[in-house]
């Protein structure tokens, strides 16, 4: 059999991890590297543009999309620790350029090589299993809307969690319900957003988990900030990549 050539990946950190969660970026790099992937980090990268796209400011969204294209077009593959950002690059960019077929084509190519990190491990690296976690904590998983219905990843993260954590992984009741974040929705209608959040947190508490994993730090920012308001302080909110890194390196944090 031929030795596969080294895979190269450009990390798209996302603005959330850039501003709030450096550990998610570090974990993404180390997980990919532990599978022999050559990771680079284009420093000119910024944000995917969802805040503009989802508030109806298509003009600004186009500016953001064009910048993303400029930074990442030459990459072999782009990997981000966020389903919603990947959904944006994959499914939302090219429709912004109707009537510009050449540009649209370039965006479609970009779309076809952009992955969420968990998705990349499953679909491209074809990693069948992960080692057991050294200190498994009772953990549940929030399958965000953009993971399920945006990039269509179902059951993959859950499988990896089962391999790493065994019985310590507890599925979340009503798992496919939205957590109530919704970007601008969270500040336009905070009472409704808060009600949906309460329901999600209620289900999390029901599982007895002390760790909540997801592939979307934006949902987790909302949920963790809500958990602090509700004094559910002990909960740890992590991107799946962080648990993967801990399992792969055999130590916690």
């Amino acid at each position: 059999m031929n030795m596969p050539t080294t895979r190269r990946v450009s990390l798209f950190l996302t603005c959330g991890a850039d501003a709030l969660y450096p550990s998610v970026g570090r974990a993404s790099v180390r997980v990919l590297e532990s599978y022999g992937v050559d990771v680079d980090f284009p420093e000119e990268q910024t944000c995917c543009g969802q805040p503009w796209l989802n508030t109806g400011d298509a003009k600004s969204a186009r500016i953001m999309a064009l910048h993303f294209l400029k930074v990442f077009e030459r990459s072999e593959a782009i990997v981000a620790p966020s389903s919603s950002c990947v959904d944006t690059v994959r499914n939302r960019y090219w429709p912004l350029f109707k009537g510009e077929p050449k540009l649209q084509d370039r965006f479609r190519k970009l779309a076809s090589k952009t992955y969420e990190i968990c998705e990349y491990m499953h679909r491209i690296l074809d990693i069948p299993g992960l080692p057991p976690h050294p200190e498994p904590a009772r953990t549940t998983y929030h399958s965000s809307c953009r993971t399920l219905r945006g990039i269509g990843l179902r059951g993959v993260a859950e499988n990896y969690l089962k391999q790493m954590l065994g019985d310590h992984f507890v599925p979340l009741p009503d798992a496919d319900a939205c957590c109530g974040f919704g970007g601008s929705f969270s500040v336009k209608f905070p009472e409704v957003s808060g009600k949906m959040m309460e329901d999600k947190l209620g289900n999390i508490v029901l599982t007895g988990a002390s760790t909540v994993a997801a592939l979307d730090m934006s949902c987790l920012t909302h949920l963790s900030a809500g958990a602090r308001r509700q004094n559910l302080g002990r909960l740890r909110f992590v991107h799946l990549a962080e648990l993967m890194m801990e399992a792969l390196e055999g130590k916690t944090r």
Binding site: R149, F181, F185, K188, F189
Partner: peptide
């Protein structure tokens, strides 16, 4: 605007 775009 009263929608989280959850897609359900």
């Amino acid at each position: 605007n009263a929608c989280t775009l959850c897609g359900r």
